[in-house]
Nucleic acid binder design. Structure first.
Lengths: 186, 186
DNA sequence: TGGTAAGGCTAATATATTTAGCCTTCACGG
DNA sequence: CCGTGAAGGCTAAATATATTAGCCTTACCA
C-alpha cells in the first residue's frame, strides 16, 4: 500500500525524543516509536541503524539545541552578566529537558555529545577569558561548567534534600565562583 | 542436588557490581550474574526481587562505600586541608568506580542513593561550616559538591577535550572555590 | 510501458526477564 | 529412625524486545 515516505528520520528522532523525555528510557522501544510515527517497528530500520543509533541521534539533537540556546544567551557584553545569563539558560534548558539532558551528559551515552555542546560554544570560552584573563580561561571555564552541570544534575536527581533554598544556593554558587575567577589584578 | 545455600544475596550483589563496572550496564544480565555466582538465572530470584532490584542493591552498595571513604578522609582539623582531602578522596573513588559512580548519581537510578552519600556525611557539612560560617554552610556545601561532582562526571565522560592540564583545572577550581567560600570576615 | 528502488509489511530468530511448578537436601520433632 | 516441611536449586514456559529476511506495492523515469 505505501508508496514513498510515510515518515522520516527527523520524525522518528522527534518521536523518540518525546518518548524519552515524557516516559523515560525504558519507554523508548522500537514498537513505541513506530506507533508514534504510524508505521510498524521493522520499518524504522529504514530510518535508523538500530535502537542505540536512534538513541544517539536523539541525544545529538538535544546537544545541538543546547548549543543554540547557549550561543543566544550572551548579549550584553559584560562578562559577569553574560556568564550569569548563560548559566541561567543552561539551567533552564536542563529543567525543560531533564531526562534527555541527563542522558546526554552521561558517559556511556555519546562519545562526543558532551564535549559537543561545550566545545562549540566558543562564545563561552571567550566570555570567560574576558573575566579570568587568557592564562586562566580554560581552567576557569571548566570550573564554571563543572559547577553548573553538577548543580543541575544533583538538583534533577533530587539530591538537595537538606532543606534550604535551592535558588539561593544557585545564586550563592554562581556569584562566589564568578568572583573567584575574576583575574586578581588587571 | 543442592541443599542449602549455593550463593547469597551479598555474593549476587558483588557479582553484579563487578560485572557492571567491568563490562558496562548491558552486561548486567541475570544470566551473567548467575554464571558468576554458579547458579542458573531463575535461582537469582530467590535472592533479589528483579533485575532492577539488583541494580538498586548494587548502587546502594557503592553509595555506602563512598560514604565510608568520605568519612575517613577528614583528618587534620584544618577545614581547607580537610575539604581538599575529602574532594580528592571523592575523585579517587569515582576514578576507581567510574561506571557505578556515574550510575549512582544518575536521576533514574535510586531515589535516595545520591542524597544518601552526601546526607550521611555530617562530617562534610561541619567542615564546610567551619570555613564558611554557619549562615552559608548549606549553600557553600552545595557549591563544593556540585563542582566536584560536575568536574568528575565531565572528566569521566571525556568532556575535557580542549587540551590543557586537567589536574591543573582541578586544583584551580578547588583552590578558587575554597577561597571564595571562606567567610568574608570572622 | 516496464524496470527499479524506496519504503512499507509479515514472519521468523535470538535473547532477556520473569513466572510456574517440580525435586532434592537438610534439620528437627515424634 | 523416620517423616515432613521449607529452603533453594532446576527446567520449562510465557512474554517482551530488537533485529533480520524476504516480500509486495507504489511512484517515477527511460
Amino acid at each position: 500500500m505505501p508508496a514513498h515516505p510515510q515518515t522520516s528520520t527527523a520524525a522518528v528522532v522527534a518521536a523518540g525524543r518525546r518518548l524519552l523525555e515524557e516516559r523515560g528510557v525504558d519507554a523508548l522501544t522500537m514498537r513505541e516509536v513506530a506507533d508514534a510515527v504510524g508505521v510498524r517497528a521493522p520499518s524504522l530500520y529504514k530510518r535508523v541503524r538500530s535502537r542505540s543509533d536512534l538513541f544517539r541521534l536523539v541525544l545529538e539533537d538535544v546537544a545541538d539545541e543546547l548549543t543554540s540556546v547557549l550561543d543566544a544567551a550572551a548579549m550584553t557584553g559584560d562578562p559577569v552578566a553574560d556568564l550569569g545569563a548563560m548559566a541561567a539558560a543552561y539551567r533552564r534548558f536542563a529543567h525543560a529537558n531533564p531526562v534527555t539532558y541527563t542522558l546526554m551528559m552521561a558517559p556511556q551515552a555519546i562519545p562526543g555529545a558532551t564535549a559537543r555542546s561545550v566545545r562549540s560554544s566558543a562564545t563561552f570560552l571567550n566570555t570567560v577569558a574576558r573575566l579570568a584573563g587568557p592564562m586562566h580561561a580554560l581552567p576557569a571555564a571548566r570550573t564554571i561548567v563543572a559547577w553548573a552541570h553538577g548543580f543541575i544534575t544533583m538538583e534533577l536527581a533530587g539530591a538537595f534534600r537538606l532543606g534550604g533554598d535551592v535558588e539561593n544556593a544557585w545564586d550563592f554558587g554562581l556569584n562566589r565562583i564568578l568572583a573567584a575567577i575574576r583575574r586578581p589584578a588587571d
